[in-house]
Design a protein around this nucleic acid. Structure first.
Length: 564
RNA sequence: UGGGGUGUCGCCAAGCGGUAAGGCAACAGGUUUUGAUCCUGUCAUGCGUUGGUUCAAAUCCAGCCACCCCAGCCA
């Protein structure tokens, strides 16, 4: 009998994760009936790669421990939010492959409850309406090393406070006239405990509640209660909320909430050569640096989708990045690794010539078509085969031919005048002659094929320098190919004093007209391919059609030779 | 000069007193009808720094240094 001690082969390959350790411990100690998490975006922009990681963490942990994860919009600031973002976020979460528990939830679902709780705090003498202007309130707050002063309105009677909050709610005051504050400690070394704001007046229409309210709770007076109402057990957020945790707990302790969630903070994801800030991404959109939030150059979930990233690759990327408490900058190479890994495995192959050069096979009859069979994937026969029409005139890439016969075999593994090369999936050919135009540019290469070399090794004495891709000049289909490059040419664009906008890579998109093998042109939008020897490409989600094919380059193939 | 955090290989990161995991990157080989993939190997006498405790310290103690967050009626 095998020992039960033998190592578990299905052990998760996921990286270390201190959050998982905490949950694991809680589950072991039966701290809760069921693990409940939540992903709580504010609908004020599109989700980016950093959110994808938070989604992965929250939904992933819930799933791993047999629990549930809510999608809850933290919609406490109507001025910055919009239904467009709500819709986009829902779509992104679904596309990533996650299913939230029950209906989508909103902080605004609980506004009535929050108001009732606010009244209770007032009755308990723990909250008051403060008439200080924003500017004065800031002065009273003090500074890090200097304790704050108590507001002159701090000791209003319960009755007066009750009357004032009702008037606030009824819209009798202008925006900014007053706020409701929690009465905690103006001398606390933790700034967030110096009588924090609970409600402020905003006479704006809300995307969910319309004009029902003109006072809105702020983040701190909403988040913990939302978590509690929903029975969230582990409330996972980013590092900058560490200072808010005592306040989060204060509200839970001073309100008759139905459950006690706990907040845990982890380091937000940063990627080099990338920006992960909704505000800054919005600026790129607003200033026309890109064509919208879902532009393929954007690190948004929808942008990456359009670029050709798969949900699997994003999850694989998250698996590779450990969850920790430090502010770290992850190398984009890790992301690129993730998408290449997924697509190498799943994407069917095709040949596409980016910079066509005519090549005539002089010993192949004009008008004749020989149909070659090539596997859709070199190591996955189950993906089937494709037909490649071979004709007298074909197209190869300009960069795959040279007249320079002095280049070593190691340095140039392509077609050299007077030498042989293998045409992928077809014959070995020899370049015999070069034809140039008046300006001296090569416009045609004449070559001869070596008979009987399709699917067979090269005969004695013939050593092809390498393998190049090709497309029949007659059957190839013209396609628009969009070659994307990184959006920023600075590793940490927003850490530089010149500001991130000055580091936008102006050469981040090249649109070319290429020629692709016929069968690959006929495909659905979002079909993914590896164009052999070039990279991974996706049929554009919006612009592609079989009649007018458009492909986006997701990522080039790894090129260990480029440095020469 | 307050409080809350973090400092281990180029980028991440495990480690929790017993003599530095792993991933990515890089480099060197091998296989290859994709210069891809895949495979193999190399890559911290060192853990911000200075002292201390100990037979033994990245791990414990003390001091110092660096970086991040907090002064929204943003989240």
């Amino acid at each position: 009998m095998a020992t039960s001690e033998s190592k578990a082969p299905n052990e998760s390959k996921a990286s270390s994760n201190f959050i998982r350790n905490i949950i694991e411990e809680d589950v072991k100690n039966n701290k809760q009936e069921k693990v409940v998490t939540r992903f709580p975006p504010e609908p004020n922009g599109y989700l980016h790669i950093g959110h994808a990681r938070s989604i992965w963490l929250n939904f992933g942990m819930a799933k791993e421990f047999g629990g549930e994860c809510n999608l809850r919009f933290d919609d406490t600031n109507p001025e910055k939010e919009d239904q467009e973002y709500v819709d986009a976020i829902k779509e992104d979460v679904k596309w990533l492959g996650y299913q939230w528990s029950g209906e989508v939830k909103y902080a605004s679902d609980y506004f009535d409850q929050f108001y009732a709780w606010a009244l209770e705090l007032i009755k308990a003498g723990k909250a008051y309406v403060c008439d200080l202007s924003a500017e004065d309130a800031s002065k009273y707050k003090g500074w890090a090393t200097k304790p704050g002063k108590e507001s002159p309105y701090r000791d209003r009677s319960v009755e007066e406070n009750l009357e004032l909050i009702e008037k606030m709610r009824a819209g009798e005051f202008d925006e900014g006239a007053c706020v409701l504050r929690a009465k905690i400690d103006m001398t606390s070394p933790n700034m967030s405990l110096r009588d924090p704001t609970m409600y402020r007046i905003r006479k704006a229409s809300h995307h969910q509640t319309g004009d029902k309210w003109c006072i809105y709770p702020n983040y701190d007076f909403a988040h913990g209660q939302e978590d509690s109402i929903e029975g969230v057990t582990h409330s996972i957020c980013t590092l900058e909320f560490q200072n808010n945790r005592p306040l989060y707990e204060w509200y839970l302790e001073n309100l008759p909430v139905p459950s006690t969630p706990h907040q845990y903070e982890f380091g937000r994801l940063n990627l080099n050569y990338t920006i992960t800030s909704k505000r800054k991404l919005k600026q790129l959109v607003d200033e026309g640096c890109v064509n919208g939030w879902d532009d393929p150059r954007m690190p948004t979930v929808s942008g990456m989708r359009r670029r050709g990233y798969t949900p699997e690759s994003l999850k694989f990327f998250c698996d590779m990045v450990p969850v920790s408490k430090s502010n770290s900058v992850i190398d984009v190479a890790l992301l690129e690794r993730a998408i290449r890994d997924d697509l190498n495995d799943s994407a069917p192959r095709a040949m596409c010539v980016m910079n066509p050069l005519k090549l005539v096979i002089t010993n192949f009859a004009e008008g004749e078509v020989e149909e070659m069979n090539a596997p859709a994937h070199p190591s996955k026969p189950e993906l089937g085969e494709r037909k490649l029409p071979f004709t007298r005139e074909i197209l190869i890439d300009k960069s795959d031919f040279t007249e320079d016969t002095t280049l070593s075999r190691k340095k140039f593994k392509r077609l050299v005048l007077g030498e042989w090369v293998r045409l992928r999936g077809a014959y070995i050919i020899k370049a015999d002659e070069v034809i140039k135009d008046d300006s001296g540019e090569i416009i045609q290469v004449n070559a001869s094929l070596v008979p009987d070399t399709v699917g067979n090794d090269a005969p004695e004495g013939i050593r092809p320098r390498g393998v190049i891709h090709w497309v029949s000049a007659e059957h190839g289909v013209a396609v628009e190919v969009r070659l994307y490059d990184r959006l920023f040419n600075h590793a940490e664009p927003d850490k530089d004093e010149d500001g991130f906008m000055s580091h936008v890579n102006t050469d981040n998109l090249t649109v070319i007209s290429a020629v692709i093998e016929p069968t690959a042109a006929v495909c659905e939008p979002e079909s993914r391919f590896q164009f052999e020897r070039e990279g991974y490409f996706v049929a554009d989600r919006y612009d592609h059609s079989s009649e007018k094919p458009v492909f986006n380059r997701t990522i080039s193939l790894r090129d260990t030779w480029a440095g020469k």
